[in-house]
């Protein structure tokens, strides 16, 4: 198939970027979206042009690197997929595909389609960990956890920090990410010990870094490749309220 591409090109963080049009032939429907970009880059290198910079690592939906905003949706069409899991069969022959970087004040563009997602690491560093001494390994049934809670904590922990929630949100809010990271600890006994300090520190960092405020639009949940639910946001609202009045 033939694909027309309209890709955001930007030399570095300071440069003013612009869209550049490309046309690519011999695209196989079996290719992943990233393989298609690899093919484009091979072509550009042969022609002596600068290849398009985009971030990728695992290419199997677990690292959260492949942050591309494709035709108005983070990670492109398809439910619960990352860009690396997206295939060209999702597009029509001859279709024009617009590819943009995540747009958010807290995620500045570094080059072409690569954004700096360091803000997420800063939020984690503010409190997304356990610092109490949990001791050496105990009997597996010494600390009892309800199955439902363990499952919920596991699902929250499956957030890969891709930032699609921020990219999709009309307010560029990081609430889904932060609430998943607060929840994965708040649901378990070891995490409860520091829950009050954690939620306040992480929310304060989130506000400080310039993410927007949640207005419960739920666009985040719709695009999250891991199906993180907005019930996490409600849980964080509860946790924070409790922390403030306790």
């Amino acid at each position: 198939m033939n694909i027309k591409l309209k890709i955001w090109r930007q030399k570095n963080a300071k440069a003013k970027g612009k869209f550049v049009n490309y046309s690519l032939d011999n695209v196989s429907p079996e290719m992943s979206f990233l393989e298609m970009l690899d093919a484009l880059n091979n072509k550009l290198i042969i022609e002596g042009d600068e290849p398009v910079a985009f971030e990728h690592d695992c290419r199997e939906g677990i690292c959260g690197c492949c942050s591309l905003y494709i035709n108005g949706t983070p990670h492109g069409p398809g439910e619960k997929t990352t860009t690396c899991e997206l295939h060209m069969r999702s597009f029509k022959d001859g279709q024009t595909i617009v590819v943009e970087p995540w747009r958010s004040k807290a995620f500045p563009v570094m080059k072409d389609l690569i954004v700096d997602r360091n803000a997420f690491d800063k939020i984690i560093a503010a409190g997304g960990f356990i610092s109490i001494d949990a001791g050496s390994s105990q009997d597996s049934n010494a600390v009892l956890v309800r199955k439902e809670k363990a499952d919920e904590a596991f699902i929250s922990a499956s957030c890969i920090g891709c930032g699609a929630c921020v990219a999709a949100c009309k307010n560029a809010s990081a609430m889904l990410f932060v609430s998943a990271k607060v929840s994965q600890f708040a649901l378990l006994p070891q995490g409860k010990v520091e829950a009050v300090e954690r939620v306040q520190a992480m929310v304060a960092k989130m506000d400080e870094l310039g993410f927007g405020n949640c207005t419960n639009t739920y666009a985040c949940e719709a695009v999250c490749p891991k199906g993180i639910s907005v019930t996490n946001i409600a849980r964080m609202n509860r946790e924070f309220l409790y922390a403030k009045i306790s």
Partner: peptide, 10 residues
């Protein structure tokens, strides 16, 4: 964004 967000939600 050049291409307005077409995600669902409220």
């Amino acid at each position: 964004y050049a291409k307005a967000n077409n995600s669902q939600g409220s």
